[in-house]
Design a protein around this nucleic acid. Structure first.
Lengths: 182, 182, 182, 182
DNA sequence: AATGAATGAGATTTCATTCAT
DNA sequence: GATGAATGAAATCTCATTCAT
């Protein structure tokens, strides 16, 4: 799966024949089919594995104490950092997120594991720390910019300095925070 | 190109052989090669054409008068509306944006045509209507949520009502607006 | 289809890859797929074509006049001769007759074209020239020995001389003829 | 070998990988190769084993006393019954009888074991109970209809009732019996 | 200029067989 | 002796591209 990620993120789905994956992984092509029933399944499994890593990374060092803003910034930064550290994972996730061969099951499962984050949003709204926006709108306002920033960072040479990250996380908080709150 | 968009956005790159495009378009397969030197070029051209349409749509009914907030909201809404009206264009752009066969030339060109929008951002910053953020950060803060909202709308059945759009555009403005300004 | 018959009758289904058929036929492998959607269809079509030839051959020079015995012998001999002249067709038909990939449609269609022969049997029974046996029993009593004789002739070097053929057709007639009749 | 028969008669040669046989038989795939040097040999051995069973079944309850007709009918019925009881064996024998990978050795050996039956035919001819036909012709006249009737029974839903069997065996006897004899 | 039949390289996948455990 | 994971050759089939008409 590591090899698959490497090759897929760089060359795309049809630039990456199974034979190439097998060769780079140092196994026979047939061997891959003992563990994944076809190419699609291999990719779906990779997708799910990365999603699990993301959640783990977001919750890393996360503590229930602190202000909502602090907790928010922690989660947001963790996610950005995760993908900055693993640009191939990001490229892969973004490329296959809505590809036609990404099974609905995979999408749903990847949604379920997001629930701890969701809980934080719900709690923040209830505590009037965040605006009373639909959950999905909040996600869009926070995840959208992360994706865009990362694309610039990885593909466009718009390096994400600490300063830029600080500015961006503040701006994102401004987007969702309750008018009076901080 | 219309047929190409239709098929590509629905079936993806693999699911759309040239022969199918030719058949749906009511021309011979060979004919396509008189106008595009290969499949990649066809897709690149389609990409650029849509980008041009986007800019045109954003600037539709745009006027230099009015507050910065008003002008911002106009541009932002126009873009969202454009893609809501033409979901296939959105799906296509998002799917092929960073595909390995998308030539750098195409990316650059598509960037250039964004310049009128850039101008507005620069001006807004100078006038202290917007925070003094790097241009790219602003783009990420505004375009990112649009993409996310549209994906939810199109793929996840999270319909974009007028209310949700109003809330989102306000939140986006909060993200970039200068603290005191409106 | 001629090449397919040649190779298939000699080397069997999996001794005959499409690539070999293409090469022997002097066409590209892909070309075969323009005319047959897969290997199975190619074989089914071949099967049906041969069946049509058999019926044509059986009815060759057949006339409604003459005694039932004479007419019977004519049909029986024609079928035997047909396969003696085209041993590959025989080998093919016998090999694929009940293969799992022989579609039911093909079987049914091949049955329909047998109807003129059936008519003769029905008429013979009514005229008390043949025993009053179920139609299928009559077919078994006449077609069965033909198959066995041909297998011996083709595979076992038991050459079918005119004498052997004459003896066999007489014996077959004895099997089905009405006791008193001739 | 029991499992092999089961799977092979139902799914055919391609549809039956060694791995499937091993799994259904509850042994490791490698184990099969300790007893048979390859897939072909496994099938050849199965073929020979069934042939031995057929002969045993034909001679079951066979007695040298009684008229030739009675003895003939006994042998003929036994064979038909054997295959009616074990349709998989029939399907297998008929499917692989002339397959290209059926070794000549197997064919010859399977022929040898037929000798007791041959003896009966030779004796019957000498006693003017049967027509003086070549041995192979007699076999064709008797075995051919058996095969055809069984195919109808098994594949075409033309059930072999006792009545149909009685009619058929009488007709077969008519085919080979000496004109005056009974 | 338009066509679409032909091509064959290359992709995915299967499976008989081996061999270290 | 039994196992079954690993293998990679080979099979089927697809499709971007060419080129004679």
């Amino acid at each position: 799966m590591k090899t698959t990620l490497e090759l897929l993120s760089e060359h795309g789905f049809h630039g990456t024949p199974i034979s190439l994956i097998a060769q780079h992984a140092g196994v026979g092509a047939g061997t891959i089919y003992r563990y994944f029933s076809n190419k699609e399944e291999l990719i779906n499994e990779l997708f799910k594995a990365i999603k699990r890593d993301i959640i783990k990374a977001m919750l890393h060092d996360y503590r229930e104490e602190g202000t909502y803003k602090e907790r928010f910034k922690h989660l947001w930064r963790n996610m950005l950092r995760f993908f900055m550290d693993r640009p191939k994972d990001f490229q892969f996730i973004e490329q296959y997120r809505y590809a036609p061969y990404m099974s609905n099951l995979t999408r749903e499962e990847s949604f379920m594991i997001l629930s701890p984050i969701m809980m934080f949003f719900i709690e923040s709204k209830r505590a009037k720390a965040m605006k009373d926006l639909p959950l999905y709108t909040i996600i869009a306002l926070l995840y959208g910019p992360i994706v865009s920033l990362l694309k610039q960072h990885i593909d466009n040479n718009q390096t994400l300095t600490n300063e830029r990250i600080d500015q961006a996380v503040e701006a994102c908080w401004d987007a969702v925070r309750y008018r009076q709150s901080d």
